[in-house]
Nucleic acid binder design. Sequence first.
DNA 1: GGTCACTCATATCCGCAGGGTATCAATCGG
DNA 2: CCGATTGATACCCTGCGGATATGAGTGACC
Lengths: 285, 285
Amino acid sequence: MSDLEVRQLRYFVAVAEELHFGRAADRLGMAQPPLSRAIRDLERQLGVTLLERTTRNVALTAAGEALLCDARTALDAVSAAEHRARNAGRPRPALRLALKADYDAGLLPGILAAFAREEAALPVELLMGNRGEQAPALRDGRADVALVWQPFDDRGIDTVPLHTESRFLAVAATDPLADKDSLYLADLSGRLLPYGSPAEEGNSSPPAGAMLFDLPQLLNLIELGEVVWFAPESVVRRHPRPGIAYRPVHDLTPSTMVVAWPRESRSPAVAAFVRTAVAVAGAAS
Amino acid sequence: MSDLEVRQLRYFVAVAEELHFGRAADRLGMAQPPLSRAIRDLERQLGVTLLERTTRNVALTAAGEALLCDARTALDAVSAAEHRARNAGRPRPALRLALKADYDAGLLPGILAAFAREEAALPVELLMGNRGEQAPALRDGRADVALVWQPFDDRGIDTVPLHTESRFLAVAATDPLADKDSLYLADLSGRLLPYGSPAEEGNSSPPAGAMLFDLPQLLNLIELGEVVWFAPESVVRRHPRPGIAYRPVHDLTPSTMVVAWPRESRSPAVAAFVRTAVAVAGAAS
DNA sequence: GGTCACTCATATCCGCAGGGTATCAATCGG
DNA sequence: CCGATTGATACCCTGCGGATATGAGTGACC
């Protein structure tokens, strides 16, 4: 009947994700035997078998699946408590805004300037991250509000759309694809980055081994013909390059940038930021 | 930089709620000195002072306020992981339905019968609780779905309205109030139960010392003239008593019963139950 | 204003939970 | 059939978290 502890949840999530006690122990920076014991004790405590294990295979039970999901959100909630308390304890707490560099559709300066004039304004701290890192940062309390492009994993997150724009295929000028004026998604099979593509599901866990790029790096790779990519119109306008061709793709849906915040947030600063962002985006369009 | 632990959060919440180390330690079933030390260590770990304390007074700082709120939800999330895993691990998991006895507006049998015919049906387990206990049960995972009367503290909870009905003042037949045909809320000042009254805020923390009643007990007390109460119409119809007078109150808003579930729930059984409940309630009205 | 009661902090001790190492046991590939 | 792999068991030991005793600051009351 004793309470579940964060450590137990961390251990279980590691094992459930790796499906391998050795690797999980490695990831946790500990030895395998105490991890095995911890999982066994956890199962005893819950009165539930979470993993079916042989010496050659580890698999989640239905209860394990359920716990994995709930444990992740619980760990996020604990992390959020920690991060928000840390921020709230600073002499002058900040509004921590997560975004992907160069992906603000040009709205950021206007939003920041307008927000600074708000009643509930706080100093704004920018958390530059790669695509897919904003939502987790909101969930675990590292950020208070974010600018994100849909689609993304919005569990536990509320959003308001700010700005919609069409996207273009960015491809090396020397690429055969650049010769066509008229493109469809089907023309690109196998050429897309595993994330940032329209086919991606909401769960944007970065695929193993995939490097994460900032925009200049990405543009370089495109110019070299290593990758192709869908560029929002605002990026096209702000980063023209002779070595890169931007081509419309007919069946590519436009992309929407939203302002996002943790659903349970009741911070007046966040509310003011959202209001400001919507107003600025509305005035700009 | 080490992780926050559940124990630390529990300790902090106890102190923050009691604002008294001795009483908090008492509530936690431990001695005061280790609790003081734990809080001090927590503050060191976060690098934040959570409580301003003198030997005569303990008060929350802003950071403490923030942490109290986030810690509560984090503790709920951990509890939810535990309870849901326990349920999912049973040979035949149940759909756990929380409600207040006798407050189903007569819809319960129909809903249960229809739900049993559903594809995704599970055995239903009823969690009878007092008013205000349903929402916490959803948040901490003891229940999967609930029937509740608005208003209630719906943080983290999604709802769909099922049924709206007007309420009547229930008062002893011998009470002077029973003589009036025409009543207003103003006539009742000071006569209301602290909960179940329309003046209550969403936070239905049961006031210290208030006993919680089941319906027969409550009706007894009303008959004895100890209390007055607002009875939903369906209760009036199903529990007529000679000793109790039911009187309309003109400025008393009708009350709505909703089906409620944790916002992040993605259980097909819950979805099916909600669908069924809406259908049955719609057909009944 | 001195004393008492109250309450939070400090000092010190102790048991055990939780981690490490060594080893066993089961299973699959060749 | 043997070896490699991998999870489980056995055992030890350190440090964390709890208890008790005591100190120290502060408001209340005579």
